[in-house]
C-alpha cells in the first residue's frame, strides 16, 4: 500500500512538473522543471528495481542533459528572459486536440489486455553488461558499437557547429 501511495505521489508530481515545464514563461524554470521530471522518472526505475537504469537516468539526463540545457539557456538568454505567450484561443484549441489524442490513447490502452510472459528475472548489472557485449544470438554488440560511433560523431559535429566558421574559412569566401 505504501509503495502504491508513493507511486501515485511520484506520478502526480511528474505530471505537475511536466505541465509546468511546458507552461512557464521562463525558459530557465522550464529547464529546472524538466530536471525534476527526470529525477522522478529515476524514482520509478528505482521502484521497479532497475537500479542501474535509474542511475544512468540520473547521471545522463539529470546530470548531463538538464545541465546542458540550462547552460544553453544562459548562453542565449538573460536569466530573467520570459518567452511570449500564445493567445488563449490558440492554447485552447491546441490543448483540445492534444487532449483528444491523450484520451484516445488512454482509452485504447485501457481496452488492450496486456499479456505477461513469465520468466525468471535476472536484471543485475552483470547481466546487462553481458547482454550488451554478447556477440551471439540476442547480443547487442553491434548496436552498442554503432552508438559509440554515433556519440563520437556527434561530439565532433557539435564542436564544429557550435564553433562556427573560422576566420580563415571566412576569408576564403
Amino acid at each position: 500500500m505504501g509503495e502504491r501511495l508513493l507511486f501515485y505521489l511520484l506520478a502526480g508530481l511528474m505530471v505537475l512538473f511536466s505541465v509546468l515545464a511546458v507552461s512557464t514563461t521562463r525558459v530557465i524554470r522550464a529547464a529546472v522543471y524538466l530536471l525534476f521530471v527526470m529525477i522522478l522518472m529515476a524514482g520509478f526505475y528505482f521502484m521497479m528495481g532497475y537500479n542501474f537504469l535509474a542511475g544512468v537516468q540520473l547521471m545522463v539526463y539529470s546530470g548531463g542533459i538538464a545541465v546542458l540545457i540550462v547552460i544553453a539557456v544562459l548562453l542565449v538568454h538573460h536569466i530573467e528572459h520570459r518567452v511570449e505567450r500564445l493567445s488563449a484561443f490558440e492554447y485552447l484549441w491546441k490543448g483540445a486536440v492534444v487532449l483528444a489524442g491523450m484520451v484516445l490513447t488512454l482509452v485504447s490502452l485501457r481496452q488492450f489486455s496486456f499479456r505477461r510472459l513469465e520468466g525468471a528475472e535476472h536484471a543485475t548489472v552483470a547481466d546487462v553488461g553481458e547482454r550488451l557485449l554478447a556477440t551471439g544470438r540476442g547480443g547487442y554488440i553491434l548496436p552498442f558499437e554503432v552508438i559509440s560511433v554515433l556519440l563520437l560523431a556527434v561530439m565532433v559535429a557539435a564542436i564544429v557547429i557550435a564553433k562556427g566558421e573560422s576566420e580563415n574559412a571566412r576569408n576564403h569566401d
Binding site: 544512468v56 537516468q57 545522463v60 539526463y61 548531463g64 542533459i65 546542458l68 540545457i69 547552460i71 544553453a72 548562453l75 542565449v76 552508438i147 554515433l150 556519440l151 556527434v154 561530439m155 559535429a157 557539435a158 564542436i159 557547429i161 557550435a162 562556427g164
Partner: peptide, 17 residues
C-alpha cells in the same frame, strides 16, 4: 538515453549556431 544525450548535444550546438 544515449541517443537522447547525443541529440541534445547536437541540438544545442545548432541552437547556438
Amino acid at each position: 538515453i544515449a541517443v537522447a544525450a547525443a541529440e541534445v548535444a547536437l541540438a544545442i550546438a545548432l541552437i547556438i549556431a
